[in-house]
Nucleic acid binder design. Structure first.
Lengths: 204, 204
DNA sequence: TACAGATGTTTACAGTGTCAACAAATATGT
DNA sequence: ACATATTTGTTGACACTGTAAACATCTGTA
């Protein structure tokens, strides 16, 4: 966001490309994104972005990483702001996760999109995504240690939860919950999430 | 699959296109599919497919519908072949669902892919996908009626399960469970699924 | 047999990702 | 300070894509 010189050099083209790209994606979806359009948005030649990104997949990978970092941040934040017990904290981070997906549907889809699974050096991306996953994992680990949750491999339990939340996020984005109004949606998601958490509570 | 005349007319180009396309998708993913490549595979001019499909999205929509029908069939079949109680039958259909995703990962991804959500007259597609969902819904409805499951809106419970299974399918496809060998994977999925079902059992 | 509709082909256009060769701006070492 | 190396941007090109328009051929029916 620093516009200093209207000259030959742009100043921070890499960042500007990422910003412009994510805006286009939010509007039109990932599929329709073209690097040339991004370049046009920035008033720069069509091959200029290639000085900063190896190819289109590279740019998308960076956007996905940004997304995972933001997601991790927001879910972690939600647990910190939470005074209640572990169950409340798990619910809070789950809802924060779903909230992210709700507000950035196309970004979320990009993060799990097919292109990146096939093409990018996915090691980096996988690591970043695991950092988002680790928020859940930490909570579950505590829960198992405290005997609050079922005595089982925390990783498995965390993955179970993650699957549910991810599935809910995807189906929501895909419009399968569209019969719910905005106010109805949150309680609906909360109820579903509660049932999932219930499944891994320690049996008394 | 009927090859009769090596002449001007192909015989059943529409079907042949669908077959060729799904093969390519299984190999290279949806993103890389081009109609022109399909036409080349079939030794036909690049615009010939347009006599049978309005556009690329149309072809993909039909493939997605095929996928949903196949999925519905296989999950239903799994419940029919199942002698045990409701819980066993729910597990069986869930595992059949995951099995479909495992064996047809790219097809599954296509079914929930972004392109179709944005572009096609998705009414038809949504209906087809709901027929796959209805397999779960029926089981859950019975379970609620029998008092075997939590007394709550069956649709909500079914959606909770569907979210979990869908999330598991997606994460599996995306390689997040790749540390498990083929033999380990099934028990792992079964355990996760069990936890999810547990969450909606009637509290005794 | 003539004709109508279905099915394929040729040609063409605009858009894309990306490469190679070149040019301008900036940074760096003396 | 200036010459040079590096970074950054531009121009032009290529191969590929989806798809529209005009034309050709086949096939079933009156």
């Amino acid at each position: 966001m620093k516009i200093t010189k209207p000259h030959y050099h742009h100043g921070d083209l890499a960042c500007a490309c990422l910003d412009a790209a994510i805006k286009r994606i939010a509007r039109d979806g990932v599929e329709k994104l073209s690097l040339r359009a991004v370049a046009r948005d920035l008033g720069v030649s069509q091959t200029a972005p290639y000085r900063h990104f190896n190819d289109k997949t590279h740019l998308l990978t960076l956007l996905a990483q940004q997304g995972f970092n933001l997601l991790a941040e927001q879910t972690k934040q939600a647990t910190m702001n939470q005074q209640g017990g572990l169950q409340e904290s798990m619910m809070a981070s789950g809802m924060a996760y779903l909230n992210f997906a709700k507000h950035h549907p196309e970004h979320y889809r990009l993060m799990f999109g097919e292109r990146l699974k096939r093409q990018c050096d996915s090691a980096d991306l996988t690591n970043t995504s695991l950092s988002a996953f680790s928020v859940i994992l930490e909570q579950v680990t505590v829960g198992v240690d405290q005997g609050f949750l079922v005595q089982e491999d925390p990783k498995l339990l965390a993955r179970t939860l993650w699957s549910t939340v991810h599935g809910m996020a995807m189906l929501m984005i895909d419009g399968f919950y569209s019969e719910y109004s905005d106010e109805e949606l949150t309680p609906f998601l909360k109820t579903m999430l509660t049932h999932s958490v219930t499944g891994i509570l320690a049996k008394t």
